[in-house]
Computed example of a mutant assay.
Amino acid sequence: MHVAPVGGTAVQDHVALAEIELCGDLIIAASAAHEDRLSLESIDEVLKVAEERADERGAEE
């Protein structure tokens, strides 16, 4: 078992931090929603799926 050293050495997992931030954004959106559930379109908007796809298409050209 590997244990992180005690002290000032902080290891950051940027992918995990980004996933936590996205989960937080979804929780905030869900709590503000007026319906029982978020629509798939709302979830995509919160997660910025369309922006990511546009960025990918721009990188391919």
Score class of each variant (00 low, 15 high):
V46Y: 00
H2F: 10
M1H: 13
C23Q: 11
E21P: 06
E51V: 08
H34E: 15
H2S: 12
E35V: 03
A50F: 08
E45K: 01
D25E: 09
E60D: 13
R57Y: 11
L47K: 01
A29M: 04
K48W: 06
E35G: 04
A18R: 13
G8P: 10
H2M: 12
L17A: 13
A16H: 05
V11H: 06
D55Y: 10
L22Y: 02
G58H: 04
I20V: 08
M1K: 08
M1R: 13
V46K: 00
D36N: 03
G8Q: 10
C23N: 09
I43W: 00
E52P: 02
E21K: 07
E61H: 14
P5M: 03
L22V: 03
A32Q: 07
R53Y: 15
A33T: 14
P5R: 02
E19H: 14
E56Y: 13
E52M: 11
G7Y: 07
I27K: 01
G8M: 12
Q12Y: 15
V6E: 02
D44A: 05
A50V: 14
A32G: 04
L17H: 05
E56M: 14
V11A: 01
H14T: 14
A4R: 07
E19R: 13
I43M: 02
K48S: 15
E19F: 13
E41V: 15
V3Q: 02
R37N: 07
E52A: 07
M1F: 11
L17K: 14
S42K: 04
I43R: 00
E51R: 04
E56Q: 14
L40A: 07
M1I: 15
E45V: 04
A29P: 15
A4Y: 04
I27S: 00
A59H: 13
D55A: 12
I28A: 04
G8Y: 06
H2Q: 09
M1V: 13
V11N: 02
C23K: 12
D36A: 04
L22C: 03
C23P: 02
V6K: 01
V3Y: 01
P5V: 05
R57S: 04
E41K: 03
L22N: 03
H2L: 10
P5E: 03
D55F: 08
S31E: 07
A50L: 05
V49L: 03
L22Q: 10
E61R: 06
A30S: 10
I20A: 08
E19L: 08
A54D: 11
G24A: 03
H14R: 09
E52T: 10
G58W: 13
A50N: 10
S39F: 11
A16F: 08
E35H: 06
A29D: 03
V49C: 00
G24D: 13
A16R: 15
E56C: 12
P5C: 00
I27N: 00
P5A: 01
E45Y: 01
G7E: 06
V49K: 01
H2C: 06
E51K: 05
E21M: 10
R53A: 12
D44K: 04
